[in-house]
């Protein structure tokens, strides 16, 4: 059974100027131990998809339609208590800016300790915690071990450091450690390495990949960086303006993109080995989410657009090694 199965997910935001259709009919499946990349430009609905999976969409957002199944159970129909059980334990999350994702008033070790302890033995009264009476030697040992596993030098000493005393790369390692601490089956990572420089990013990606393979954890990695996808992911989902444009194995999609949008994304990467080549710039913007075209969402910017693209958003055609939402692939469909 798939770890995560999203069917026809619609997430809307009711604003004063109208309904913003952030996500319009996403289908996504993640198998156990699989790393899936979710790519797309800013505003394509990647992060909203992630919060919908956790049923964490904040007012005025709402999940208008569709189902999210985690391990066969319908996440959207769970009670708050059942959701709390799921979050942090079964599904965990890595944030874009780890410096903001740690509470600045508590030590990093303490925060990891509390996550593990509350997962193992339930929450304690805040007063007990404030006095430090909930300290658990086993949990501390596990946390130190995890800090060591994510490559933080001298973990015993770093345990009692505050977040601001960590460097950017180190705090992201700690964040990865926190996400994997309770041995989750699914990790949602929302652009976690965007703020890091390339060499540190590569170190953390390598480490992360090793760790999730070892723990057999499934991952949904949200990014706009296709080179990260190429390095890390088994499969890739390309999103544009709330719709899935192309899904397939990373190798197939990146080496031979079938959707003109994927092609355009790939062409937009500056090539350091061809400095004389003129840089490709995708014309236009992501369509206004309040007023999206009826036809293919990408039609206005697509170099290979033809008449019927403006009539309906294309269905997804299965071409064997991938699914593509583009009429160009119709002939190849099985």
């Amino acid at each position: 059974m798939s770890v995560l199965q999203i069917d026809d997910l619609h997430t809307y935001f009711d604003t004063e100027s109208g309904t913003v259709r952030a996500v319009e009919g996403i289908d996504l499946t993640i198998e156990a131990g699989e790393i899936v990349g979710l790519v797309g430009e800013s505003g394509s609905g990647k992060s909203v998809t992630a919060s919908s999976i956790m049923d964490l969409v904040q007012h005025p957002g709402r999940i208008a339609d569709g189902t999210v199944r985690y391990d066969g159970q319908d996440v959207l129909s769970l009670s708050e208590d059942e959701l709390a059980e799921l979050r942090g334990g079964e599904i965990s999350m890595i944030f874009q800016d780890p410096m903001d994702a740690f509470n600045p008033t508590q030590t990093v070790g303490r925060q990891l300790h509390d996550v593990l302890r509350s997962h193992r033995e339930g929450s304690v009264h805040p007063l007990v915690r404030a006095l430090g009476l909930d300290h658990d030697a086993d949990c501390k040992a596990a946390v130190v071990e995890m800090l060591d596993a994510v490559g933080i030098p001298n973990p015993e000493a770093r345990y009692s450091d505050y977040p601001h005393e960590f460097s950017g790369g180190m705090i992201q390692r700690a964040m990865v450690g926190m996400a994997l601490l309770c041995d989750p089956k699914l990790v949602l990572a929302d652009e976690p390495t965007t703020g890091l420089d390339v060499s540190i990013e590569r170190q953390i990606l390598g480490l992360f990949k090793d760790l999730v393979e070892e723990l057999d954890t499934a991952v949904l990695w949200i990014t706009h960086d296709l080179s990260v996808v190429a390095k890390l992911c088994d499969r890739v989902v390309v999103m544009y303006a709330g719709k899935v444009m192309e899904v397939g194995s990373t190798e197939a999609v990146l080496s031979d993109p079938a959707s003109p949008y994927t092609q355009a994304l790939l062409d937009s990467i500056p090539r350091y080995d061809r400095p004389d080549e003129e840089m490709y710039v995708m014309e236009g913007d992501v369509p206004d989410p309040l007023n999206r075209p009826d036809g293919c969402r990408f039609a206005d910017r697509c170099p290979e657009v033809h008449d019927r693209c403006h009539d309906h958003h294309p269905p997804r055609f299965d071409t064997g090694d991938r699914e593509v939402a583009c009429y160009l692939a119709e002939g190849d469909a099985e």
Partner: peptide, 15 residues
């Protein structure tokens, strides 16, 4: 974000 993180971790509201 750390408040969202705590919610994502499934912390009870009181905590």
């Amino acid at each position: 974000e750390y408040v969202t993180a705590a919610e994502v971790m499934g912390y009870p509201t009181r905590d």
